[in-house]
């Protein structure tokens, strides 16, 4: 059986071969308008530079190079929150957002759920995970079951830890609010995509006296979480949480690559600001326009 590391290069080669075979005949037949969207070449360059940076840092991490990642108090607080729940004998409530599984924020939330489930399994702390979509239910059940099995706590696993509660936004919110007031979880963890219900959930949790950790990439919901929660992961911290909790160098390499690109973007913004200030930035601005 081939290992994943060997399969990936083979798949990349096969994919580009397929691409070449399907695109080339079209290009030869119709040379007036290219099958490739040349107007998006700037985005392709950014994708390639970004991928190269992430892969390079991942490779360095693999080779054992020490990578510094700043402390993120919100993620460190997850273990503390589960510990508090264990001491109090109360459950931990984890909400993986209100979006479908095709949303990257939900995938990030499911990854964090896997890490949280490992901690709750270790301490045998009850875990409650209400979800809004059946696909998230299936993924959540798989992740939690795997975490309990890997820690040898298969007996403590209950299929209803992850449960479908409602498909409607406000029906979901009222069910979860009721759950908070009846079960009084010691810790509420909100991770993923949230909308108008963010404050309804976080304020109810606050009233129930739970320690609350939230994480979302939606800037319009961040003020609500900051006002009502003890810790808030902002934007990119949500995506970093899983890697940070894993403490695996390979995963942390991706975060460093991301930081490198951020520095490049800051430099590009500064150059843009200077050029536009001197009224000579038209050509520079056009470089970043995408059709």
């Amino acid at each position: 059986m081939l290992k994943n590391s060997k399969i990936i290069p083979i798949l990349i080669t096969a994919f580009f071969l397929f691409l070449f075979l399907t695109v080339e005949p079209v290009l030869a037949r119709d040379s007036e308008e290219s099958a490739f969207r040349t107007e998006r070449i700037n985005a392709l360059v950014l994708v390639l530079v970004f991928s190269a940076a992430v892969l390079l840092y991942t490779r360095w991490a693999k080779q054992g190079k020490t990578l510094f990642v700043r402390k993120i108090p919100g993620i460190d607080a997850v273990e503390e929150a589960v510990g508090r729940a264990t001491e109090m004998g109360k459950p931990v409530l984890f909400i993986p957002g209100l979006q479908e599984l095709d949303d990257i924020e939900t995938i990030a939330a499911i990854s964090i759920l896997g890490r949280v489930a490992r901690i709750t399994a270790q301490y045998e702390t009850p875990l409650l995970v209400p979800v809004r979509y059946p696909l998230v239910l299936a993924a959540g059940q798989e992740v939690v079951e795997q975490a309990y099995t890997e820690l040898g706590k298969r007996d403590a696993y209950n299929r209803d830890i992850v449960r479908y509660v409602a498909g409607e936004q406000m029906a979901f919110t009222s069910t979860v609010n009721g759950m908070m007031m009846r079960e009084r979880p010691a810790a509420n963890i909100f991770m993923g995509a949230f909308f108008a219900e963010s404050l309804l959930l976080a304020e109810t949790g606050n009233a129930a006296g739970s320690i609350q950790i939230a994480g979302t990439a939606r800037p319009e919901q961040l003020p609500f979480f900051i006002a009502a929660c003890d810790y808030t992961l902002m934007g990119e911290e949500l995506y970093a949480a899983s890697s940070y909790l894993s403490k695996e160098p390979l995963m942390l390499g991706g975060l460093k690559g991301q930081d490198f690109i951020k520095i490049i973007i800051v430099i590009l913004i500064l150059i843009g600001v200077i050029l536009v200030s001197f009224n000579v930035g038209g050509w520079y601005y056009k470089l970043f326009e995408m059709a």
């Binding site: 990439a217 902002m234 991706g254």
Partner: peptide, 12 residues
Amino acid sequence: IIIGAALGAASM
């Protein structure tokens, strides 16, 4: 925040 989140999503 949006730029950071977009890079985080792309990295993930």
